[in-house]
């Protein structure tokens, strides 16, 4: 099948759009809708969290003390910083500064790695102390019989969030490759902007997770 892209004035837009601006608007709207579905998905988890927390407030209080607040805080700072570098990458792409795009994407990528490394230490600490989800829970310090639930929620919510971080890193690599192939220009930088959206969303989720998990009480 023939390519569906037509080239008009240095950037591309698909044949069924009238012009590039319209295509950009459409993509942006699509991304917003996608974010809505993400919110609802995490929303489900937050509802479960709220329900169990209201049922067992003391247990949440107690169990939360066993999370590493310092590591969590470090990660919060890392993610906020990475959001900043991501914004810079988007700005660079709007201006068509190829080197800068690559640099900021690289920085964001590195920060995400940092996030995952910290996560790794956190998780292995939990595993070491038997602070595991549900039926795998093996810790004897925490006596409340419902404690495993807290760690189920902890691992599921932060795990799904970490998965989103990894997906985001994949997207950055993809952007970097496209940047190197000179596919972006001030007239066409939609993918960079959309990945930027996505990344801020991932950041936002963490901003909710951090106090809800680490700072209960």
């Amino acid at each position: 099948m023939s390519s569906t892209h037509v080239t008009t004035g240095g950037h591309q837009h698909a044949h069924h759009f009238a012009n590039a601006a319209e295509e950009f608007e459409a993509s942006k709207q699509g991304m917003w809708l996608f974010m809505v579905t993400e919110v609802l998905m995490f929303g489900g988890l937050f509802v479960a969290y709220a329900m169990f927390r209201s049922m067992y407030p003391e247990m949440f209080h107690e169990a939360s003390k066993h999370l590493a607040v310092k590591l969590g805080l470090t990660n919060t700072i890392i993610l906020i910083t990475s959001s900043l570098t991501m914004v810079l990458a988007v700005i660079a792409s709007q201006r068509g500064q190829k080197q800068k795009i690559l640099m900021y994407l690289g920085l964001t990528f590195l920060l995400s790695c940092g996030f995952l490394v910290v996560k790794y230490f956190e998780y292995s600490g939990k595993i070491h102390h038997g602070l595991l989800p549900g039926g795998l829970f093996r810790n004897s310090e925490l006596t409340h019989p419902k404690t495993p639930l807290f760690f189920s929620l902890y691992f599921i919510m932060t795990g799904i969030h970490a998965f989103h971080v990894i997906v985001g890193m994949g997207l950055m690599v993809w952007l970097a490759l496209r940047t190197m192939r000179d596919e972006f220009s001030p007239a066409f930088y939609t993918p960079v902007e959309l990945v930027g959206f996505y990344w801020h969303f991932v950041d936002m989720v963490w901003i909710f997770l951090f106090p809800l998990m680490y700072l209960v009480g």
């Binding site: 929303g43 795998l136 691992f155």
Partner: peptide, 25 residues
Amino acid sequence: QILATPVLAITLLLLIFERVFQVGI
């Protein structure tokens, strides 16, 4: 489809976790 399906997604995912990791929710 956009508003409801993600909730199904997370529910089914939790059910899978339930069977694999016994998360107990």
